[in-house]
Design a protein around this nucleic acid. Structure first.
Length: 549
RNA sequence: GCGCCAGUAGCUCAAUUGGACAGAGCGUUGGCCUCCGGAGCCAAAGGCUGUGGGUUCGAUUCCCGCCUGGCGCACCA
């Protein structure tokens, strides 16, 4: 049977509740933390105690007495503690799980939780005025994996990057490059006050000189800046794209802010707001009544000089996403955009989109630690720790894994020294080694001339260590769907570490390839199941599953 | 001052979204290689979950107050 034990038990109990005339909402199945309490448990008797005005244990006994179940799958039902009903599944159930894994292979872990949903995931979206930093790297790995997870639960999902290629910051990039460029020809041009001081600007200027020579020197300041802005912008964006691809992140769409301004999306927003009376004029500017939607104050849409704010552009952009058919929008923003969240949620509500269909998660700060000390960074000051440096120093696999170990909305410490260590202290190597070890066993069997036979009996797998592996393998689909559901990719890294530990333990206790031919065949299948699940999980994380290390 | 997020073992983090005796890794201490790779395994020590109240059968989880830390509070983008 492909149906999960959880669903089976849930149905079983719900049917019984109905028969008794009891409310079915109280039915919930969970997995006890404690080993001794069976594989699944329900606190339903306790939840019902109040409404039924009976003691929890009495209710539990009534439930157990009337429960009809398949004895091949459920070995034991017991009542413990204040009124928990515990279910212990038999080896047959777990052996079936392995059969299912071997049948589904790379499809094992998929589900239909998200079927029919069309999800847009916008992440990174850094200004094209500087190189990507480590927070961008964190966002990149998380957003990328979330989209993989959405696909795994049957949803349509795409990766989107909003390119802020319009506005003052971009112009400032042009002025900064221009000043550096002119300096290369010995011409003094005052460096803009809010310009970008990073070395990458000098590099860019030199690059442009090498390729285009002095052709911009004789132009007027405005003319030169216009042209240099465009060139610099293209190169910054290309560099960002290359960095992200090196990090194995590929976006489906790079959405240009400028293209939005050229369209009439912003006017549509203004018209809609005016129509619903969500906007008004004050001090020569046009304001959005965001305070009606929980914001602490109203926000400006059009400045008194008539120019649209970034906010208006962003509203229009998100309206555009809905118009393109997405029914769920997720944005991962950096910590500096914190204040923006409430007003954007307000705007989406005002436009009439369902609450919750637009959600922002703030990717929190990354503290890089080297030698136990925090490495400081600042984009403005120019001593930024670049994403490319981090990738080069610790490698893509380790960097991705470390970012994915933590919940996304809490600040994290990134220990560079640890990430670089190729030893058991480093969790990514621990997990990858488990995969390599499985491959090694399979290779070893092959050199011994043992071929995988179609004639194998999974019923031989019944020692505690084997069953422990099977139980953990069985958790994978649920782990995937919960990770997608709650936007918590770290569930996967935790799962991987647990599976690796249980497998290493099994390996230590039992030989796979032995004199016992039948047992060898069964265990080779077990090990193959471990390999499949490790590989599937690592693939969701976009991390290498090595055959050798 | 206001808002958001966080506070769990020495350190970095979990805890199945309100369930049972709060778990992992690292670090510390002590063990394990005639063997499919020791990049591994086993064991021990380590906790009043920041703090005070509340809600209930049951709270790390929900509510209120306080303390500490991070981030944010533009007609910038």
């Amino acid at each position: 049977m492909d149906i999960s034990a959880e669903t089976y038990l849930h149905d079983l109990l719900t049917t019984l509740m109905r028969k008794q005339g009891w409310p079915t909402e109280a039915v919930s199945i969970n997995r006890p933390r404690q080993e001794g309490f069976g594989d699944y448990a329900t606190p339903v008797a306790m939840s019902l105690a109040k409404t039924l005005k009976q003691a929890p244990r009495a209710i539990a006994e009534k439930i157990v007495r009337n429960l009809e179940f398949d004895r091949n799958l459920i070995e034991e039902v017991s009542i413990d503690g204040p009124g928990f009903i515990n279910f212990r599944l038999g080896p047959g159930y777990w052996q079936n799980v392995l059969a299912e894994i071997l049948r589904k292979r790379e499809l094992y872990g998929r589900s239909t939780w998200g079927a029919g949903r069309k999800i847009n995931m916008e992440f990174v979206s850094a200004n094209p005025t500087g190189p990507l930093n480590v927070v961008s790297a964190r966002a990149a790995s998380i957003g990328d994996v979330l989209v993989n997870l959405f696909h795994a639960v049957g949803a349509e999902a795409s990766r989107e990057y909003y390119v802020n290629d319009a506005g003052q910051r971009v112009r400032m990039l042009g002025y900064s490059v221009s000043a550096r460029y002119m300096a290369l020809f010995g011409k003094e041009e005052p460096f803009p006050e809010d310009g970008y001081h990073g070395d990458y600007i000098k590099d860019l200027a030199a690059e442009i000189r090498d390729e285009f020579g002095d052709r911009f020197v004789s132009l007027s300041l405005e003319e030169r800046c216009d042209q240099l802005t465009q060139i610099a912008l293209d190169r910054m964006i290309r560099a960002q794209r290359e960095t992200l691809e090196k990090f194995r992140v590929k976006f489906d769409l790079w959405f240009s802010e400028q293209s939005l301004l050229d369209s009439n999306r912003q006017q549509e927003v203004l018209d809609l707001f005016a129509q619903k009376n969500f906007s008004y004029e004050k001090d020569g500017a046009l304001w959005f009544r965001s305070s009606q939607f929980g914001d602490e104050q109203d926000r400006v849409l059009l400045k008194s000089d008539g120019e649209p704010t970034y906010f208006l552009g962003d509203i229009a952009y998100h309206m555009d996403k809905y118009r393109r058919g997405f029914d769920q929008l997720y944005d991962l923003w950096g910590p500096d955009h914190h204040s923006h969240v409430t007003r954007m949620e307000a705007a989406m509500q005002a436009l009439g989109y369902p609450p919750g269909s637009f959600q922002v998660r703030i990717i929190q700060q990354v503290n890089l630690l080297r030698g136990g000390e925090v490495v400081k960074m600042s984009k403005r000051a120019g001593n930024i720790i670049e994403m490319t440096e981090l990738i080069e120093e610790v490698g893509v696999d380790a960097a991705r894994y470390f970012f994915l170990m933590r919940k996304l909305d809490s600040p994290m410490d990134f220990d560079i020294d640890l990430a670089k260590k190729q030893s058991d202290e480093n969790p990514v190597y621990y997990v990858q080694y488990a995969h390599a070890r499985v491959c090694n066993i399979l290779a070893h069997a092959a050199t011994k001339g043992i071929a995988l036979s179609e004639n194998y009996d999974l019923r031989l797998l019944k020692t505690p260590e084997e069953l422990a592996v099977l139980r953990k393998l069985a958790e994978f689909p649920e782990t995937v769907s919960k990770a997608a559901q709650f936007l918590e990719p770290h569930r996967l890294t935790i799962f991987l570490q647990e599976l690796a530990a249980i497998f290493h333990h099994f390996y230590h206790e039992h030989r796979v390839v032995s004199e016992d031919a039948a047992m060898t065949q069964a265990r080779l299948r077990l090990v193959e199941g471990v390999r499949i699940v490790l590989a599937n999980a690592l693939k969701l994380l976009n991390i290498t599953a090595p055959e050798k290390m």
